[in-house]
Design a protein around this nucleic acid. Sequence first.
DNA 1: TTTCTAACA
DNA 2: TGTTAGGA
Length: 94
Amino acid sequence: MKEVIAMPIHGPDEPVYTIGVMARLVGVSAQTLRAWEREGLVCPQRTSTNNRLYSENDFHRLIRIRDLAAQGINPAGIRAILGTAGERPAAKRG
DNA sequence: TTTCTAACA
DNA sequence: TGTTAGGA
C-alpha cells in the first residue's frame, strides 16, 4: 500500500478555534479568554461577524499565560515575560 | 446554540 | 474572574 503522509491542512498560525473550543482546550472560561485579550495578552483573528478565532499558536501561548496567571502573576508581568501579543521576535541583524 | 460588548461585584 | 443584560 501506498504510504499516506498526514498533511496538515492548517498551519500553526491558521485561526480555526472558536472561543468556546479554545476555552475548553486551555481549561479556562470564554470570559477569561476575552479578559486576556483586553489585557493585551493575546490577539486572536476575527471573523467577518467579529467572532474570535484562535490558532494553534494562540493555544500554546494561552497555556503559558494560564500557567503564569496561576502563579499569581498579573497581566503586566505576563506581558513582560511573554512579550506583547502580536509582537514578532525581532529578526537577527547582521 | 454560540458568540459579542459592556458593566458590575 | 464570574455574572448579568441585550443583541447579532
